[in-house]
Simulated scan of single mutants.
Amino acid sequence: MNEYMALESVDIIDVVRMGVPALAIDDLARGMGVPSARLITWMGWPVAAIERKIRARSALSKAAGGQVFLLIQLISQIQQMVNESGNPDGFDAAAWLGNWLTELNPALGCVSPGEYMDTAAGFSLLSDTLARMQSGAYV
């Protein structure tokens, strides 16, 4: 997961086109402290099919690889927020996000944020919600 966090947009496109390894799902889930099956479900993917890809060490589809990078961008956004507005010492952005995604959120209609990760528009909503939290406009 960490090897993907510092990539530039052009490099991300290349990785997605070549195929993001399905093992990235296990790495992300472990870093976020959530079960892989839960992360897969949040992404809107069939659990059994993705678990087969993980076991076979194969690549995700381009669409799924793109979603992986949207998730990585959320983790990076959170880390940047803490770097700018808080104390980053010992802070684990992936673990914080994993917890936040599971909690019911009043600003999102009392739905857990993870339920929005199955579309690009959902990721955009989550990113905007996080930005509002940092600015204090969070309701």
Score class of each variant (00 low, 15 high):
residue 88 P to S: 03
residue 50 I to A: 02
residue 102 T to A: 04
residue 48 A to P: 03
residue 108 L to T: 03
residue 89 D to C: 06
residue 96 W to F: 06
residue 107 A to H: 08
residue 63 A to G: 03
residue 111 V to I: 14
residue 53 K to S: 06
residue 114 G to S: 01
residue 105 N to Y: 05
residue 105 N to P: 00
residue 91 F to M: 05
residue 94 A to W: 08
residue 64 A to C: 04
residue 92 D to E: 09
residue 109 G to I: 07
residue 78 I to D: 10
residue 43 M to C: 11
residue 83 N to F: 14
residue 105 N to V: 00
residue 104 L to R: 11
residue 42 W to T: 01
residue 100 W to P: 02
residue 53 K to G: 05
residue 58 S to Q: 13
residue 99 N to P: 09
residue 74 L to Y: 13
residue 69 F to V: 02
residue 58 S to F: 13
residue 74 L to W: 10
residue 52 R to W: 10
residue 97 L to M: 05
residue 77 Q to S: 12
residue 69 F to D: 05
residue 45 W to G: 04
residue 42 W to Y: 07
residue 57 R to W: 13
residue 95 A to L: 04
residue 111 V to Y: 15
residue 43 M to A: 10
residue 65 G to M: 07
residue 58 S to D: 12
residue 98 G to H: 01
residue 113 P to I: 00
residue 64 A to F: 06
residue 101 L to N: 00
residue 97 L to H: 03
residue 56 A to V: 09
residue 96 W to M: 02
residue 101 L to D: 00
residue 66 G to S: 04
residue 61 S to N: 02
residue 62 K to Q: 13
residue 68 V to D: 13
residue 53 K to Q: 07
residue 100 W to K: 01
residue 54 I to H: 12
residue 92 D to S: 09
residue 45 W to T: 08
residue 85 S to L: 14
residue 71 L to K: 07
residue 84 E to K: 15
residue 49 A to K: 09
residue 44 G to M: 13
residue 49 A to N: 11
residue 63 A to P: 03
residue 61 S to R: 01
residue 85 S to F: 15
residue 94 A to N: 06
residue 102 T to D: 04
residue 72 I to P: 15
residue 113 P to W: 03
residue 112 S to I: 08
residue 83 N to E: 14
residue 93 A to L: 09
residue 54 I to T: 09
residue 57 R to F: 13
residue 115 E to D: 10
residue 114 G to L: 00
residue 42 W to N: 02
residue 100 W to V: 02
residue 67 Q to T: 04
residue 106 P to V: 04
residue 71 L to A: 07
residue 63 A to M: 08
residue 66 G to C: 04
residue 67 Q to H: 11
residue 60 L to C: 00
residue 69 F to A: 02
residue 80 Q to M: 14
residue 99 N to Y: 14
residue 81 M to P: 14
residue 77 Q to N: 13
residue 102 T to G: 07
residue 40 I to L: 06
residue 62 K to M: 12
residue 55 R to Q: 04
residue 92 D to T: 01
residue 72 I to L: 15
residue 76 S to E: 15
residue 99 N to I: 10
residue 97 L to F: 06
residue 106 P to L: 09
residue 102 T to P: 01
residue 69 F to G: 04
residue 78 I to E: 10
residue 41 T to Q: 11
residue 100 W to N: 00
residue 93 A to W: 07
residue 57 R to N: 11
residue 100 W to R: 02
residue 48 A to D: 08
residue 76 S to P: 14
residue 104 L to P: 11
residue 60 L to F: 05
residue 44 G to P: 11
residue 111 V to Q: 15
residue 65 G to E: 11
residue 114 G to W: 00
residue 91 F to W: 07
residue 51 E to Y: 11
residue 92 D to Q: 10
residue 58 S to K: 14
residue 89 D to M: 05
residue 82 V to M: 15
residue 41 T to P: 09
